[in-house]
């Protein structure tokens, strides 16, 4: 496959998995957890590096999943002790991120783990870091990791579809049906961090946040049904990847920055023009 093809495939995988995960974030009003987790993932990656002295995919995934879970646990712990949800998110992620940055500065200065890299990613280099996959030949490492993350996400969502749906829309009913809401919450937070870290090295934290929140919020403006929202959201994620790449090539600028910006364009169109919940439709409906 060509250079552009690999980049587009990588970004599309990010867009579709983040799109799926993001739907539940939006419905459960935990959008800012995406921002929090995509920051604390740094601490997980640094810790994994300091323990194993290796920058391999598996270690980073485990470290990041642990950091994401730790974030969710701490936020919940503080919240149970009377700190407001949004304040506890703010406290936890800034602190864990600061510890991560200090560890990078103090212990891992020479590794390519600098803060800027984690923010913006290096998607332009993805096609050159390949590995052999039987049956496919040389495939970029990131594509393998992201495909795995996408499949896991899809599997978990299909497998627990009913449980997710009920916990997202009616937590009280979920509790009375005996669905382990806390367990589902932490499973979901782990899923978010695994998706985040798989995407993280490829496209950077900021695009992960954009892809987790914006396509899902756009899809939320088009439909009332969960299956179509899931499908639309991941389609928007892929569309943003293509649109953003076009923008980046045209303006000769940062690829992940442009893709994040493209998710915003999609949201803008949905916000203004969606036939159901768009601004134009609202105006028309409220006009006599």
């Amino acid at each position: 496959m060509s250079y552009d093809g690999w980049i587009l495939l990588t970004a599309s995988l990010v867009g579709s998995s983040c799109g799926l995960v993001g739907v539940l974030l939006i419905l459960r009003r935990m959008a800012m957890m995406a921002d929090a987790i995509s920051h604390t993932v740094l601490l997980g990656i640094v810790t994994a590096y300091l323990v194993t002295r290796e920058l391999s995919g598996v270690h980073m995934l485990i470290g990041a999943a642990a950091a994401g879970l730790l974030t969710a646990l701490l936020v919940q712990w503080l919240h149970n002790r009377g700190v407001r949800q949004e304040a506890s998110i703010g406290i936890v992620f800034t602190t864990l991120f600061a510890i991560g940055v200090i560890l990078v500065a103090a212990k891992a200065g020479n590794v390519h783990l600098d803060v800027q890299h984690t923010l913006m990613g290096e998607i332009a280099f993805i096609p050159w870091e390949t590995m052999r996959v039987p049956g496919f030949g040389a495939v970029p490492e990131a594509v393998v990791m992201l495909s795995a993350a996408f499949l896991v996400t899809l599997l978990l969502i299909v497998l627990f579809y009913k449980e997710w749906k009920i916990t997202a829309f009616d937590p009280v009913l979920a509790a009375s049906l005996g669905i382990p809401a806390a367990l589902m919450h932490y499973l979901y937070m782990t899923l978010t961090s695994v998706t985040a870290v798989a995407a993280f090295d490829a496209v950077g934290a900021i695009l992960v946040v954009a892809m987790l929140i914006t396509p899902a919020a756009s899809a939320y403006l088009w439909t009332d049904r969960l299956p179509s929202m899931l499908a639309l959201s991941s389609a928007f994620g892929v569309l943003a990847a293509f649109l953003g790449y076009g923008l980046a090539v045209w303006l000769d600028t940062s690829i992940s920055g442009s893709m994040a910006f493209a998710t915003g364009l999609i949201f803008l169109v949905s916000f203004l023009g969606s036939p159901r919940y768009g601004l134009a439709a609202r105006r028309r409906r409220s006009a006599p």
Binding site: A31, I213, G264
Partner: peptide
């Protein structure tokens, strides 16, 4: 919360482009 997330990430993306 979603509105804040959108503004945060899209503006930052635009900023990185620029």
């Amino acid at each position: 919360d979603a509105a804040m997330g959108i503004v945060l990430s899209v503006f930052f993306g635009l900023g990185i482009m620029l």
